[in-house]
Design a protein around this nucleic acid. Structure first.
Length: 864
RNA sequence: GGGCGCGUAGCUCAGCGGGAGAGCUCUCGCCUUACAAGCGAGCGGUCGCAGGUUCGAUCCCUGCCGCGCCCA
């Protein structure tokens, strides 16, 4: 019978491969990774899933890692967290749709290709079909065409992906490796372009010439989501403008923008400047006349309370420019240098002293000029202030006016914003409080989502522009790629009705030069993974997906953008649950990252402690909580894994191996045995409830607590009975078999390797395809107190031996247990197990006041 | 400055209205025929501080202090 996820293998005794003499953790990963692959243990049964009810599917929108990046222990933890859920859901009998993707768009890959091959992209070069990268990269990067560059990106990422896949398999992720996507594949690019065209057709995407935050190093536009504020040193320069009734002093950190000044602004309630509103002043050095205006965003207690508005020094300038309808006087170019020509109305002198300079040197020169002219009042006052940076950049952002594509995200539209906030409420957040990150972000947006990037390796906009007779692009009438032709690369493909010779010629056409932001493509991971564009049947079955696992730092980017896209295209949320994992932090509580140099390489740790041990440690990090990396903890996980192997071997050797699990319950007669299973039933219920709430930490904890007392107390108590061959032995053996079966399954999601190993010794099929345990598998009516109280009495005997510093094997002449009346019967019920385990010759059990106590008289030690 | 989370044993963390807990570390023992990569026993905390609610507060409320993350 082919394994069917809906009816997992039932335990079948006799299918044993035998219990090894000396079980070992070493080599388990290799063995089981290979076996799971060969047997397709984690395959998604598409046919069965499509015919079954939606509730029988669990679909996961796995984060696609950047394969050209590097993985550290933090990644291993968070992907493992997802795997816990996937394995649990699979054992619940669901068809688990668990693909893996690789997100190789954008900057990280471009940089890696540049360094790895020693090349750089020059889009003006023609494609060279015979190009081979240099054998050893030269310091001087070899310029190559965009298409050659992209080919190298594809080639290198493929190698990187293979490495990543190997690691993920080693980590034990139960991914369906036949279902892998790349965000740069033909079909992903087609999906992204088709979706973009849909957004465009519905008016959800648009192009606009607008002030844009711009990174001069990378020469690309930057979206709000990619910004970060950094505290930077600066200085207030107090500069005098000439007003109608004498000088007006402003304080600015960017005096070099003086030629870009279009107005002065103060708060409408500011008495000091009220008389100036509506009048004009003249700029120093350039003598340009600018109005004095009032606006609520001007801060009276900042500097002198009146500020100059420039094109554009910061985002406030943009707001003032827009709301007060001021002219533009742009002076900073895309390269971060002062433009060659002054803006209209600004005199060439002394502007040409600044032309071509970086903003830094321009500032130095302006300050000199202001000093010479006497318009600088005093020395600049050093301050530190927040400056906007691209999160990956090293130079402050400039604001330049460029033509860019945008997708609406509610930043300029209250109705859309409300709709997206409402979508957030449809998502179940784990942990719950992470939803605030989403709400805060959406409610704080102040513009639409800028998706154009001036990069090479990414999904191009499927758009061309006609050129007029003067060779200028006609932006108002973009030529869209026909749907059937997707994906297209407009820089090498030709729009319908044109031929290649017309590219760049007057009356011909030109390609949109940009590619999509990485989030604009990765925001479609649910659609790509679920086959929106390629497999509508599958898509209908698995979308909206059940789970989006991700880290909390990209709620504003990846999570939000995915919600936006699904909202527009499908009118739904993309998934019903967002499981947010925390970070692994170093001992100083700093987030682990390669750039900080505090990252731990996963493979070393996996080899040192074994995968199960590392997974065990990952399970100790609760959903959403940051967790310090601590190798000492790994040892504990390794010990647990070892213990499972050993106790498995022992229990099976006691006779549990030959127990028929289906009828085992009937043979369990001893009260302590029934009590054990009653306690286990409670553990199963608790662990199940915890897993349902995505609390794998709690589920593991209850299973583990039970397991250690099972090993240390219960097994010790019953082992001598189990060695016999009577009905008492049968009862113990049946109990051991049931308890082992249930516990292996409880541990299976966290410790897939050792549980599978032990399972294979006596069961057929994979434990990972077995059903998650249910309390109903276990006999009812047992009293857990029998085990607990008997174990307590045994502990008392052990303490006496420990205090006397004798071996646990030492004989006890008499032991007197005084216990509350209610516990006496429980102790009597387990009397022979207790006397055997404690090696007690004469046991008295008496009812008494207070908690249980044990008085022990050790047997005299015979002389050796 | 705003939002969110967190301050409990040396470390990592549970508990969240009536007994202060686990694992690791540490100490002392034990070669016990599953496991010495083991087992047993033990030491260790005025639950951040100050108020309040309550018969009763680690737990609820308020305010501080400290740490972290996100956003301005």
């Amino acid at each position: 019978m082919a394994p069917d996820i809906a009816t997992p293998d039932t335990p079948a005794p006799g299918a044993t491969v035998g219990v090894p003499e000396k079980p070992s953790i070493d080599g388990l990963e290799e063995k089981w990774v290979e076996r799971w692959s060969a047997e397709d243990t984690y395959g998604f049964d598409r046919a069965a899933a499509l015919t079954g009810p939606r509730e029988q599917i669990w679909s996961i929108d796995t984060p696609p890692p950047t394969a050209s990046g590097s993985l550290h222990v933090g990644h291993v933890f968070s992907y493992t967290h997802t795997d816990f859920v996937a394995r649990y859901q699979r054992m619940r009998g669901k068809h688990v749709f668990y693909p893996m993707g690789w997100d190789d768009n954008g900057l990280p890959t471009e940089r890696r290709v540049q360094n790895y091959y020693g090349v750089r992209c020059d889009p003006s070069l023609p494609y060279d079909p015979s190009f081979e990268p240099p054998a050893t990269p030269d310091k001087n990067q070899l310029p190559i065409s965009r298409r050659n560059f992209v080919e190298l990106c594809m080639q290198l990422t493929e190698e990187d992906e293979a490495e990543f896949e190997k690691l993920w398999r080693r980590v034990g992720l139960s991914v369906d490796w036949s279902n892998v996507y790349r965000t740069i594949s033909e079909s992903s690019r087609a999906t992204a372009q088709r979706m973009f065209l849909q957004n465009l057709a519905r008016g959800e995407a648009y192009a606009q010439e607008a002030p844009t935050l711009w990174d001069v190093t990378f020469r690309t536009a930057v979206a709000q989501a990619e910004l970060e504020d950094r505290e930077r040193p600066g200085a207030y320069h107090r500069i005098s403008f000439s007003g109608p009734d004498g000088p007006v002093f402003i304080e600015t950190t960017r005096p070099e923008l003086l030629p870009a000044c279009v107005a002065l602004v103060a708060h409408p309630d500011d008495e000091r400047y009220r008389p100036l509103f509506g009048k004009t002043v003249r700029t120093p050095l350039f003598d340009v006349e600018v109005p004095v205006v009032a606006h609520r965003l001007a801060e009276p207690d900042k500097g002198s309370g009146i500020a100059m508005i420039c094109t554009f020094g910061d985002l406030n300038d943009v707001t003032w420019w827009r709301e007060l309808q001021l002219p533009t006087r742009a002076i900073v170019g895309w390269d971060g240098r002062i433009l060659a020509d002054p803006p209209p109305g600004v005199p060439a002198q002394p502007y040409d002293e600044l032309a071509g300079k970086t903003v830094f040197s321009a500032q130095q020169r302006i300050v000199e000029l202001l000093k010479e002219s006497g318009d600088l009042d005093g020395e600049p006052k050093p301050i530190t202030h927040p400056v906007k940076f691209f999160e990956k950049g090293e130079r402050p952002l400039e604001i330049v006016t460029t033509r860019q594509w945008y997708i609406r995200n509610g930043g300029r539209d209250a109705d859309l914003r409300d709709a997206l906030v409402a979508r957030g409420k449809e998502i179940q957040w784990v942990p719950e409080h992470m939803r605030h990150r989403y709400d805060n972000w959406v409610e704080g947006l102040n513009g639409d989502w800028l998706i154009s990037r001036q990069r090479f390796f990414g999904v191009p906009f499927p758009v061309w522009y006609r050129l007029d007779d003067a060779g200028e692009p006609i932006h108002d009438e973009p030529i869209l790629a026909p749907e059937a032709s997707l994906p297209v690369d407009p820089s090498s493909d030709v729009p319908p009705g044109f031929d290649e010779s017309q590219r760049g010629e007057p009356g011909g056409f030109i390609a949109d030069p940009d590619v999509m932001d990485t989030w604009a493509t990765s925001s479609l991971s649910p659609q790509v993974a679920s086959g929106w564009d390629t497999d509508p049947e599958l898509f209908a079955a698995v979308f909206p997906m059940d789970q989006r696992p991700q880290a909390h730092d990209i709620i504003r980017t990846w999570l939000f953008s995915t919600v936006v896209r699904a909202h527009f295209e499908h009118g739904t949320v993309p998934w019903t649950h967002a499981t947010i994992s925390g970070f692994v932090v170093d001992p100083d509580r700093k987030k682990m990252s390669k750039s900080k140099g505090n990252a731990t390489t996963p493979i070393d740790v996996l080899e040192r402690y074994g995968t199960d041990a590392v997974r065990w440690r990952a399970a100790g990090a609760r959903p959403g909580a940051d967790s310090p990396f601590d190798e000492a903890q790994m040892k504990v996980g390794r010990r647990l894994a070892m213990k499972i192997l050993n106790v498995g071997k022992f229990v099976l050797g006691l006779g549990a191996e030959n127990v028929d699990l289906a009828s085992a319950a009937d043979r369990i007669t001893e009260p302590i045995d029934r009590g054990l299973l009653a306690a286990l039933a409670k553990v199963v219920d608790e662990a199940t409830a915890a897993m349902e709430a995505f609390n794998y930490t709690r589920a593991l904890e209850v299973a583990e607590t039970f397991f250690w007392s099972f090993c240390d107390d219960y097994v010790e108590l019953v082992k001598s009975r189990a060695y016999r061959s009577d009905s008492g032995a049968e009862s113990a053996q049946a109990t051991l078999a049931l308890a082992l079966s249930v516990q292996l399954r409880l541990f299976a999601p966290v410790l897939p390797f050792v549980t599978e190993e032990v399972w294979s010794w006596w069961q057929s099929g994979s434990v990972h395809r077995a059903l998650w345990p249910a309390a109903t598998e276990l006999p009812t009516g047992g009293d857990p107190a029998v085990v607990a109280v008997t174990a307590e009495a045994l502990a008392g005997v052990r303490k006496a031996k420990s205090d006397a510093k004798v071996s646990m094997r030492a004989d006890v002449e008499t032991a007197t247990v005084i216990a509350p009346e209610a516990q006496v019967a429980a102790l009597e019920a387990a009397r022979s197990d207790l006397t055997d385990a404690g090696r007690i010759a004469d046991l008295s059990v008496l009812a008494g006041e207070g908690p249980l106590t044990v008085q022990v008289v050790l047997a005299p030690v015979p002389d050796a």
